[in-house]
Design a protein around this nucleic acid. Structure first.
Lengths: 330, 330
DNA sequence: CTGAAAGCGCTTACAG
DNA sequence: CTGAAAGCGCTTACAG
């Protein structure tokens, strides 16, 4: 009769198999063990339904845990990223440990240190802004850190090719003959989106001969996008198109457009960035750019594992994208 | 000059403060410590920027970790739930440890045992189907377990009031004079949605005198919903309304409706369940029921903590909802 | 290949 | 209130 109280430990398995705890440990970690011992350990493990306690490996060289630091769960791409990372890590026998910072940069920085002290094998930071404190934190730890979404001049990062993507979209818009362009954008503090992506769009537009570009400041929320778009659309000299920094921002613009009784694209064209699955539900579907977040997630995970193993990795890796033509541009 | 290599441990803090490790530990855990010692410990902590390693508390009575088992990150409500839980737990000085099972029920069951052996203080299972193995797993561990989303006859659960919500929606639809009703629903294996929610709808419809109800089998994916809806809509005697088990399913139906050149609600009415934020982007906005997932998440967290402290909790707690009238019903 | 011993960082009775 | 010691579950040199 097994106890319902206590779960089996390595000691129980060792006792039943008639070997030392260390031998069980070795077996568990794929180190050479005599076939005879291995067999008995296997049996004992099966008998107890033993599974090692991942957190008791205080003195291990390898924890098989990767820390993932996120600014929040409610971004549209986060679930996609998390799912892909989780799946990839699991196939490599790794367990992800997720820390949600809710956009608290200070907590983000502290979490790097925390995870390092937990002896995780690597850290992936899904990042929005990089500060001096981030650089310092990375320098202070010996744990490999990969930044996703923002370029990290002092270290390793994986991010979208915002410049090229922006340029392609800009060229497309210019090519459709639109001349008065408005950008519904986010702060320049966000280097990847606020600067690089915008720069790409500008270049593409310029290449197509478009020079009349006004930039309207919004943020990443639906609500602000809606509010700002509403104001812009009511101006007598409103632009012919609102190019939005993200799809979510474009959603806010759709709402404003509909409320004002305007039509997309006859009265106002719209573009986004992100390629959310819900875009095709909009009428008309939103023209956008889709980044391959799944690949990005896997590349991050792969890179951090390589770093842990001491293998060489590229300093910066850019992820590709796909242009998605909807019907939201005249 | 501080070492960049080693992070500080409780030993370092104790040495600097001139006390024993155990005293530091006591201080950290809010147990009485002489003010003089406390002050020196505080200084040492500040000096080292010390933060305790959460995973080294192998022999602690309390881990301050709550395990959260999820079937995936990509459900529409998951981010909402996760954000709320995370925030709530953090205010209570707790750290969530998220396990993603990707819908693997066997892994879900094993995770309960795993988390228990990690000595988490409690486990929240965001659940889809409950099996005998689940019951057994819960019985086997001494760790408090709360199930969210499905009723758990053997233990504690927090879930939406699907019966009442369904009934309200059913009454509404009947009240609009619709008579030929189609349900685009999910498997009965899902007790909460597949059975309870449907039963509520049926009751509400019956109360309003609607008896012509056909049920079409789909699943939780957008793709299947679209495919099934397309078939249904092409039948010569198609229903006047498709009531969908979730908003996501309704999204699939919207797509089918649009592709077939039909209009909502003139040719076909639609309803959902969930009250996603994106509903208002649809044309016309989807009529739906919104459950208060944030409250549900906090109630779960609160309940599991109460259980850990040995306080009494209700066996089943039902979460309220709000009827959201869009324009998708004639 | 394997066992005994020491250690990972923290907590907990147990004396004092 | 506090220190020394033992322990949590696992891993790792070190002999053999």
């Amino acid at each position: 009769m097994e106890s319902v109280e206590k779960r089996p430990t390595i000691k129980d398995v060792a006792a039943m198999a008639g070997v030392a705890k260390s031998t069980v440990s070795r077996y568990l970690n794929g180190k050479p063990v005599q076939e005879d011992s291995a067999r008995r350990i296997r049996q004992a493990i099966a008998h107890y339904h033993y599974e090692a306690n991942v957190f008791a490996r205080l003195s291990a060289k390898q924890s098989n845990i990767i820390g993932i630091i996120l600014p929040g769960f409610d971004s549209t791409v986060t679930p996609r990223v998390l799912t892909a990372m989780d799946k990839y890590l699991r196939t490599k026998d790794y367990t992800p440990l997720i820390i949600n910072t809710e956009g608290d940069l200070e907590l983000e920085v502290r979490s790097i240190g925390n995870l390092a002290r937990m002896r995780v094998d690597g850290i992936i930071v899904v990042s929005t802004y990089l500060t001096a404190a981030h650089r310092q934190a990375v320098r202070d730890v010996q744990t490999p850190v990969v930044f996703m979404g923002q370029e990290f001049s002092d270290g390793i990062s994986v991010l979208e090719d915002n410049l090229s993507a922006g340029e392609e979209l800009g060229r497309y818009v210019a090519g459709r003959g639109l001349r008065a362009v408005g950008l519904l954008w986010v702060t320049e503090e966000d280097v990847a989106v606020g600067q690089r992506r915008r720069e790409g769009v500008m270049r593409g537009l310029a290449a197509g001969g478009v020079t009349d570009v006004r930039v309207y400041q919004a943020d990443f929320t639906y609500q602000t996008a809606y509010t700002v778009a509403r104001q812009v659309l009511q101006q007598p000299d409103r632009p012919q198109i609102l190019m939005c920094a993200t799809d979510r921002i474009a959603y806010g613009a759709y709402k404003a457009v509909r409320e004002l009784g305007l039509r997309v694209p006859q009265d106002i064209s719209l573009t986004g960035f992100g390629g959310y699955d819900t875009n095709e539900l909009l009428t008309p579907p939103l023209t956008s750019i889709r980044f391959d977040s799944e690949t990005e997630a896997c590349v991050c995970a792969d890179t951090v594992l390589k770093m842990f193993r001491g293998e060489p990795v590229s300093k910066t890796q850019l992820i590709g994208y796909r242009f998605l033509e909807g019907g939201s541009v005249l």
